[in-house]
Design a protein around this nucleic acid. Structure first.
Lengths: 192, 192
DNA sequence: CCCACATGAGACATAGATGTCTCATGTGGA
DNA sequence: TCCACATGAGACATCTATGTCTCATGTGGG
């Protein structure tokens, strides 16, 4: 028996590997298991010991992404203040997950079968609830469904993350670009 | 020599194959050459005779997408009327290309190297010019850069196309969802 | 009728990634 | 010191998609 140290050490390494893989796959979604291993500073053998295969790795990244999104939603306190303020906090919190989210967003294989992760439905429901709250309070227009606003938020996050890595837009504008477009749109507001 | 019939027939078949492949790959981006061939109703051998390989096929799809986008931009008459009207026409015209666009959008391999298709730059430039025109005429706000609005339009189109195929939103709302979110945002306008 | 040619079917080799295995090494703890 | 164990390196088999080839077939035009 190797006592308890085993599980502990593995957990730490596993997290490091996962984050390295996320960073790499965000940039190059077709990266090899070899490249993922090198990026994490470990050998391919060790990578396989921690994740049964590429599929398992992607699944773990999906779980990580969902976990971090849920943490972001918690931190954004979606039920506090106006819905608009909550959306602003939400985008602020989601910004750090945007890269991983963009990667998962393109891994459409995750959503093909019937066995997609239930976490996505939970996240969708929470975000849609926020938009619905904004509609009921009169802040948001009612002709754009909560489901669409949720999808649009994902899409804008992915687009922005991708545009930033491509150097088309500045990273510092991330929050402003998404929030202002999502909430306010491109048209100038008439001065009241 | 086989006279002229050769080129003519090939052109027709090629176009049909291309559109079948676009329809299939839009749904399942990892489809095999076998599946692509079956979807087009031809054999894999014939598919290989028309497109040197999967890479060539994707490149051809890219060219087709660019071509159709440019046709859409032409049909939308971006220089006529207000910028807002032009954007509405543009989304209307782009709707039929949205699926293909969404597929190409996720084929990030196309944009990795330095040899990306110049057509994208042309399209970006024309769309950015439209948004810039709207800014200069005072219709659009100036704190959202034309480059970002262009990226956002791509992203929203892809998100909407994907959400429609997933059944999350209704296809008939496509134009309204994108245009209203892009131009007006989620916030209710104050009554003047 | 005859021939050229595009096609479909399938065999075959190749490439690239993946998954599994063994073995030597180094390190931390008893 | 000694041992257990995780690791790295690499060999090896496998698998899947791909690319290439041959051959029989059918069809359309001369």
């Amino acid at each position: 028996m190797s006592h308890v140290g085993y599980g502990c050490l593995m957990a730490v390494d596993r997290d490091h590997v996962l984050r390295s893989a996320a960073a790499l796959l965000t940039r190059k979604s077709t990266a090899t298991m070899d490249e993922v291993a090198k990026a994490a500073g470990i050998s391919r053998a060790t990578l396989h010991r921690q994740f049964a295969g590429r599929d398992a790795l992607v699944r773990a990244l999906e779980a990580l992404g969902i976990e971090e999104c849920e943490a972001a939603l918690d931190a954004a306190r979606l039920d506090d203040g106006t819905a608009q303020e909550a959306v602003r906090r939400l985008v602020r919190e989601l910004e750090k997950v945007a890269g991983l989210l963009a990667f998962l967003y393109t891994e459409n294989q995750l959503f093909e079968g019937d066995g997609q992760h239930e976490g996505w439905a939970r996240l969708d429901a929470r975000m849609a609830a926020l938009f619905r709250r904004g509609q009921q309070s009169g802040e948001f227009r009612i002709d754009l469904s909560p489901a669409w606003l949720t999808e649009a938020l994902y899409g804008l996050m992915a687009s922005a993350a991708w545009a930033v890595t491509e150097g088309r837009v500045a990273a510092k504008d991330f929050h402003h670009m998404i929030v202002e477009l999502l909430l306010g749109g491109a048209l100038r507001r008439e001065e009241p």
